[in-house]
Design a protein around this nucleic acid. Structure first.
Lengths: 195, 195
DNA sequence: AGCTAAACTGGACTGACGGTCAATATAACG
DNA sequence: CGTTATATTGACCGTCAGTCCAGTTTAGCT
């Protein structure tokens, strides 16, 4: 029986998320302090911590928010992203989707990475990967395994995803060269799968 | 006419490097403060900063030190790592070598990554990649291009290297599964090159 | 050996940051 | 309205990277 969220709380949560996003497009994640986020959102610092628990909690919430559309497209959208298409096509479409999400939210994963390594209060689940990563990794692993069960699919999935938090590649994405990355992904995955 | 480094300075530099390395094998990089390094090395904090400039400078020096042997093996050692072997074999050997270096120095790249995103004083060359990365990337790019000039070799090299700073994979390496990574690298690269 | 300029050293200090909390304000609801 | 559960706030805390400089050590020279 969850009581509804108070109106001001909801408003503030949105403002904070939006402010964070806004700041992330203009500054490197490590330059964004929680105090700055609070100021930009027009709330007190305490509010930010009250709603999100920690720096990592905030970044995590933001990432989850931005990854939601892709997740829904995958679980219940139309092919080739959604169920129904061949694993090969689904995989290629999903990788395009992931690149797109990351490209459109420049420092997202970097911010998360930074949050993880910065947070002072150890989060209970900081050991386990966060939900978005788990989902992405699981989906890729599954689609790969459907075609090449002989490969170390889990590891290959990690390799592909690791790309998205690499500094040089993040800079590439910032320069708008997302297609370039998507294309190389396709090349690697198709040669691997069709081998 | 570079004046020689004073004996005490040399001794301390070694002690600091060694202490850092030692701490890195027992603690996560983000828990290692510069003060701790100084204490462990038996010197004052000021000394650490005097010698290495910043946290990032220290980590960078450490990485360079650990990567030196591989670099020399590549530029002037015997095949298949050194000059003389076929690009295909050289590439595979080099990737093995890189995995080995990273595996044997658990948190090395992670430490560097953390240093980069943590340092408060902006290093002059923090924008450009650090020398070890440049060398690794350049070498991979070159060997790839010798066989498949049609590929986006620079990007593929970045993709391969990005693997080595991924958290899940670093944890794998800590568990001693370096072979597993090396094997998947071989699979990916050979299918790509022989396609 | 004795001298001196240059290099080195260490720890008190600064500023910034993540996170806490007790006091205060206010939305929700009868 | 009055009541109450919930939300807000900013001063405060502990920690840490990095600075500073007075005092110490040493290489190089005679």
């Amino acid at each position: 029986m969850a009581r509804r969220e108070r109106a001001d709380a909801q408003r503030n949560r949105r403002a904070i998320l939006q402010a964070t996003e806004e700041l992330l497009t203009r500054h490197r994640p490590e330059q964004i302090s929680m105090e700055l986020v609070a100021a930009e959102a027009g709330v007190g610092k305490g509010t930010v911590f009250h709603r999100f628990g920690s720096r990592m909690g905030l970044m995590l919430a933001l990432v989850e928010d931005r990854a939601l559309a892709l997740r829904e497209a995958v679980t219940s959208g139309p092919p080739p992203l959604g169920p129904g298409a061949e694993p090969r096509e689904r995989l290629l479409a999903f990788l395009d989707g992931v690149v797109d999400v990351v490209a459109r939210n420049k420092g997202l994963l970097a911010a998360l990475g930074h949050a993880v390594t910065t947070t002072q209060k150890p989060e209970p689940d900081s050991r386990s990967a966060h939900p978005v990563y788990s989902f992405w990794h699981g989906h890729i692993t599954e689609l790969l395994a459907a075609q090449r069960p002989d490969l170390d699919t889990e590891l290959v999935a990690h390799i592909l995803l690791s790309t998205l938090s690499s500094d040089p590649i993040l800079r590439m994405l910032e320069r708008g060269e997302g297609d370039r990355l998507a294309k190389s992904f396709r090349t690697i995955v198709t040669t691997l799968v069709d081998a």
